[in-house]
């Protein structure tokens, strides 16, 4: 059964149309890779799902409810946790406050997040602004998990991170998948993304161009849709 169904959404930034009809589905416990070259609409799709750039046309259904025109805080409360591009932690709060401020009841508690990212546990009283890029990314994921989402959305979670830190993030993503959490992930590291994804959605010029399993995303398709 699908947890999230996006049907033909069209979104604008002011007078500029960015999405021309995006369709995607995320099932319960499924990891879906949202792919495409830069500027094809991946982040806008995520922003539309989360209510930050509301879709003007089309429909977004989450867990049986239409959330197309819901306010973003209601969408988050419905169970969609966002890890935004560029991490964007609350720099004026410490690590603990960043996590606790967003907490909602569920299996993801402060202890559970620290177990997933032990480095955060060592820096609980440290200002988020003073964390390294990797630690900020862990904090951003932890913050989203503390909302106890049913769907976690990761937008370029490993971008700009050192390889060893990327490994930590991907290890966490695999662990989250094993726990049964549904994940919609945008990332350019195909070698890490493909093994963890159950299905792929490729965007081109603001609309869905291809959908299938990672095994079906051949080198030719990768070259056509993802090559520079």
């Amino acid at each position: 059964m699908s947890l999230l169904t996006v049907s033909g959404i069209e979104s604008w930034y002011g007078a500029s149309q960015a999405l021309f009809g995006v369709d995607l589905t995320v099932g319960e416990g499924e990891v879906v890779a949202l792919m495409g070259r830069n500027g094809m609409g991946k982040t806008t799709t995520i922003r539309s799902i989360c209510g930050l750039t509301p879709a003007r046309k089309g429909r977004i259904v989450f867990s049986g409810s239409d959330i197309t025109h819901q306010k973003s805080f209601r969408i988050a409360r419905a169970g969609i946790g966002l890890v935004p591009e560029g991490r964007r932690c609350f720099a004026n709060l410490d690590v603990s406050e960043n996590l606790v401020a967003t907490a909602r009841p569920g299996q993801w508690t402060l202890d559970a997040v620290i177990e997933l990212f032990p480095r955060l546990g060592e820096r609980l009283s440290q200002s988020a602004a003073t964390l390294s890029g990797g630690e900020q990314q862990m904090l951003a994921i932890g913050r989203a998990l503390m909302t106890n989402p049913r769907l976690l959305i990761l937008d370029e979670a490993t971008e700009g991170l050192a390889p060893v830190v990327r490994d930590d993030i991907w290890r966490a993503v695999r662990s989250l998948k094993q726990s049964g959490l549904s994940i919609l992930v945008v990332d350019k590291t195909l070698s890490e993304l493909m093994p963890v994804a159950d299905s792929c959605v490729v965007l081109e010029k603001g609309s869905t161009a291809w959908t299938g399993s990672p095994a079906d995303l051949t080198a030719e398709l990768q070259d056509r849709y993802l090559g520079v």
């Binding site: 989360c50 209510g51 930050l52 973003s72 609350f90 406050e97 960043n98 401020a101 909602r104």
Partner: peptide, 24 residues
């Protein structure tokens, strides 16, 4: 408190706070 953290987070970025389920 948790309320204080949310208030200070809202001061920094209203949209980001809303995206984690807090109505500012």
């Amino acid at each position: 408190s948790r309320f204080g953290a949310a208030l200070q987070a809202a001061r920094q970025n209203e949209g980001r706070v809303a995206a984690v389920g807090i109505e500012p």
